[in-house]
Design a protein around this nucleic acid. Structure first.
Length: 560
RNA sequence: UGGGGGAUCGUCUAGUGGUAGGACUGCGGACUCUGACUCCGCCAACGGGGGUUCGAAUCCCUCUCCCCCAGCCA
């Protein structure tokens, strides 16, 4: 970070704490619950937590907040580790679990009981809800609230020993049932769950609640700045209450920031899970999903995701960032990084009537217009070619400078051709174009300075490689599907289209995960799950900007 | 109607009593063997009303709107 770049409010606090000597080193943590896959919102938290530590020579823990067995699983643990690593962050030897601290956590709970700050309640879940009051009315004390310390200690011990069924007893903090902050109305500390834990097996039959486990885990790990999202803002008094009561050697500070919401995307684990469970998408890593795994499979570079988050900033204001910002980051990265190739998504045959039947010429094509060091490749050119259906119009508007009857166009890295005849089937659809080429206009020869306005891409029929290409679009039709009553009603029915494309031969050997630009179309990569060299499956990462498409769209709207 | 937060171009974000700036989008143009890239230009904001001050996005008062909280979820 340069000196001129403004710092967000969290980085300001951190730098002040460093300068004042309050902390020698910054320690943060990223604490996901392993009950789902990480999504774009988590990317922000990861970049923030790992970022501020890395920038200041501090360190960051990857801590699994695994306090609710039954909802959590090892599959998610592995996916989360993979995703964080892929994003470019390293926790080194600091991979921990809240469950690593179950023993000291229990000790802390015992301490609270001993100091009269916690008690075992025997009210049912329903009764507790009734006793809690409402937003505008205070709650009332549980009749078990004043159990003697010895009795509480005994009950807690027996809870741990598994003597009671689920829900029979509950350890609660003794704070204030009339607090206007609901979190302070004697929040639960430990609940009974006779269920085995993915990490601790059957060692426990009671499990700590988030607020307690999270606060104390932060303290145990000597976290200096515990960064979380806004919805935990009114948990902070409880966070601080634990610290005030238990006075751990280290006192972390919680700071909240607003979550990152992406327009046209959902970032609720519940809803994401529903998309998967209902087979609306093909899994957590479906390329349409806003999950890290999905975006990786789609072909979004990790660097583009990091840049996106950086542009979003860190504030306390609710945000809904336009999809275009993300796509722009992806294009920017890929434009520099990826080699160019040619492929035709919706093929239309062109026959060059004046080109020799059996001749094949090799055309030299640049792999990147801005980076000559990436070299060139040879493209076979022959009498029969595929061009894009969209690149021909029988009745073209004035500004359409692609191929039209009697019109001329340049074939990229090839010749200028002229359209002589249009061949149609019985249904009246154009199925073939008869064209002539101008032998004096071969690319790179400089034998002709003849210019035409349009340049289109092509693939030689005889040499083309077929590929299933998946064209993705946003999953939802509204900017904020998070707030829709029923997300099913706002699903985009056309979020996935598949076409059989014709690709230049060099693409048959496209390395897995290697993004390329199909000239004039967009960025593409092989699908990590289904692609084989024999049966290529390619994902479209993002289209190129297309000012022609924009013009067309406007024209359509003007016509109504 | 209890408590906790938040309001700056369409979107995101700077600003910390002294010319409201940047990015993305949009619009117009240049360039182009990718209608891409690049370059140039333009449009566009301090939620409302009062006050303090030579001067207010910034300080004070007031109003309005938005978000979060009543799990033995995190």
């Amino acid at each position: 970070m340069s000196d001129t770049e403004p710092r967000d409010f969290i980085r300001q606090i951190i730098h002040e704490d460093l300068e004042s000597g309050k902390h020698q080193q910054i320690v943060t943590r990223f604490p996901p619950e392993p009950n789902g896959y990480l999504h774009i919102g988590h990317v922000m938290s990861i970049c923030l937590n790992f970022g501020v530590a890395a920038e200041t020579g501090g360190r960051t823990y990857l801590r699994f907040d695994d306090t609710n067995p039954g909802k959590e699983s090892e599959e998610y643990v592995e996916a989360i580790e993979r995703d964080v690593r892929w994003l470019g962050f390293d926790w080194e030897d600091r991979l921990t679990h809240a469950s690593d601290y179950f023993e000291p956590l229990y000790d802390a709970a015992v301490s609270l009981v001993k100091m009269g700050s916690a008690y075992v309640d025997s009210l049912s879940a329903d009764e507790i809800r009734e006793y809690r009051g409402t937003l505008t009315e205070p709650g009332k004390n549980s009749p078990y609230r004043d159990r003697p310390v010895e009795e509480n200690l005994d009950l807690l011990e027996r809870m741990r020993a598994g003597e009671f069924p689920d829900g029979e007893m509950l350890l609660r903090a003794k704070i204030d049932m009339s607090s206007p902050n609901m979190n302070l109305r004697d929040p639960a500390l430990y609940r009974i769950r006779h269920i085995s834990h993915q990490h601790t097996g059957d060692a426990w039959s009671i499990y700590p609640m988030y607020d307690f486990a999270h606060t104390m885990s932060d303290a145990f790990e000597e976290i200096t700045h515990s960064l979380c999202t806004l919805e935990f803002e009114d948990h902070r008094p409880l966070y601080n209450w634990f610290l005030d009561q238990l006075k751990p050697a280290h006192r972390p500070r919680q700071i909240e920031f607003s979550r990152l919401n992406l327009a046209f995307a959902i970032t609720s684990k519940r809803k994401l899970n529903a998309l998967v469970e209902e087979n609306i998408v093909a899994g957590w890593n479906d390329p349409r999903m806003p999950t890290i795994a999905g975006m990786r499979r789609r072909g979004y570079p990790a660097a583009a995701l990091r840049e996106f988050v950086k542009r979003g900033g860190v504030t306390k204001k609710d945000k809904l960032i336009e999809m275009g910002v993300l796509e722009n980051c992806v294009r920017e990265n890929l434009g520099d990084e990826s080699e160019r190739r040619m492929a035709v998504l919706r093929p239309l045959k062109v026959v060059l009537t004046n080109y020799p039947e059996d001749e094949v010429e090799m055309m030299e094509a640049m792999n990147h217009p801005g980076r000559p060091e990436l070299g060139t490749r040879q493209l076979p050119f022959s009498r029969e070619l595929w061009i894009e259906q969209d690149d021909f119009m029988e009745e073209a508007p004035r500004k359409f400078f692609r191929l039209k009857p009697e019109g001329e166009v340049r074939l990229r890295f090839g010749y200028i051709i002229r359209c002589d005849d249009v061949i149609k089937n019985d249904a009246g659809e154009v199925i073939e174009l008869r064209c002539t080429y101008d032998p004096d206009t071969r690319s790179g020869t400089g034998t002709s300075d003849r210019k035409v306005k349009g340049t289109i891409h092509w693939v030689s029929c005889a040499h083309a490689v077929d590929a299933n290409v998946r064209l993705y679009d946003r999953l939802f039709t509204v900017a904020n599907p998070n707030s829709a009553d029923d997300f099913h009603a706002v699903l985009n029915a056309d979020s996935l289209k598949t076409v059989v494309a014709k690709m230049e031969p060099s693409l048959a050997a496209l390395a897995p995960g290697q993004p390329v630009q199909f000239e004039r179309l967009g960025y593409f990569c092989t699908d990590s799950e289904e692609h084989t060299e024999q049966a290529p499956v390619i994902n479209r990462i993002v289209t190129l900007r297309d000012s022609w498409a924009k013009l067309e769209k406007q024209a359509m709207q003007q016509q109504g």
